[in-house]
Amino acid sequence: MTRVLVVDDQFLIRAGLVGLLNAAPGVEVVGEAEDGEEAVRLAAETRPEVILMDIRMPGTNGIRATERILAEAADPPPRILVLTTFDLDEYVYGALRAGASGFLLKDSGPERLLAAVAAVGGGDALFAPSVTRRLIEAFARQAASGAGGEPAPDLAALTSREVEVLKLIARGLSNLEIADRLYISEATVKTHLNRTMTKLGLDSRAQAVVVAYETGLVTPGG
């Protein structure tokens, strides 16, 4: 049973998501929040595995809520799936940078929503990796060169194989595709990714993709 917390400041959207999820087999909605502050509190109280997070909310927005939830979460942390109206959204980029696992457009159909919840709940690859990569490419350059914000991590701690895996993840390849490309097992790919994330202090695969672009390991369109 996948435990889900739903966060959206619009009642009708929130109620629709809750109704859809509660009707799906293998999913349990453990709470619903109308703003970021309530999301942080309920995440600590209910310990969901997946959080559907609205990104643009008054007060504490989805980016700040994501940062706080992941910073305060017990292990394993929840997977946060950002809900947005626009696929090229600077706010979504900020949430991915903060550790969200992926994002989903609000006009996606029920099947896509449930597939996304299942994917991130199972710790799978980014949902819609090609779209996520396009978003990251659109904003990574300006974030890396802009003033303020957190500096990108140093990749010197990574082994050459870990760097190779990180490059391929940033290109949108799945673990299985990376395993085939490097002639190693899928389990070994997961091990390299987990070690990379631990060394760099990352919370999600999406965050690893952001780091690969912001450090210049890969370049947009390259």
Results as ranks from 00 to 15, higher is better:
residue 101 S to Y: 00
residue 12 L to W: 11
residue 133 R to H: 06
residue 50 V to N: 02
residue 53 M to Q: 04
residue 92 V to P: 04
residue 160 S to P: 12
residue 173 L to D: 00
residue 165 V to N: 00
residue 98 A to V: 00
residue 71 A to H: 09
residue 183 Y to F: 15
residue 207 Q to D: 03
residue 197 M to P: 02
residue 199 K to E: 08
residue 157 A to E: 13
residue 158 L to P: 03
residue 188 T to D: 00
residue 198 T to N: 12
residue 117 V to M: 06
residue 149 G to I: 05
residue 72 E to R: 14
residue 69 I to A: 05
residue 118 A to Y: 07
residue 206 A to T: 02
residue 76 P to M: 07
residue 71 A to C: 05
residue 107 D to Q: 12
residue 174 S to Y: 06
residue 112 R to I: 09
residue 24 A to C: 10
residue 22 N to F: 11
residue 96 L to W: 12
residue 74 A to T: 15
residue 168 L to K: 07
residue 29 V to P: 03
residue 8 D to P: 11
residue 12 L to Q: 12
residue 129 P to V: 01
residue 170 A to N: 11
residue 196 T to L: 04
residue 99 G to V: 02
residue 215 T to W: 02
residue 1 M to D: 12
residue 218 V to D: 03
residue 204 S to Y: 05
residue 41 R to K: 14
residue 137 E to G: 10
residue 145 S to L: 15
residue 187 A to M: 14
residue 139 F to W: 12
residue 109 G to M: 10
residue 84 T to N: 11
residue 48 P to R: 03
residue 150 E to I: 08
residue 126 L to P: 04
residue 159 T to D: 14
residue 35 D to T: 08
residue 113 L to G: 03
residue 130 S to A: 15
residue 62 G to L: 05
residue 97 R to V: 00
residue 33 A to R: 08
residue 132 T to I: 09
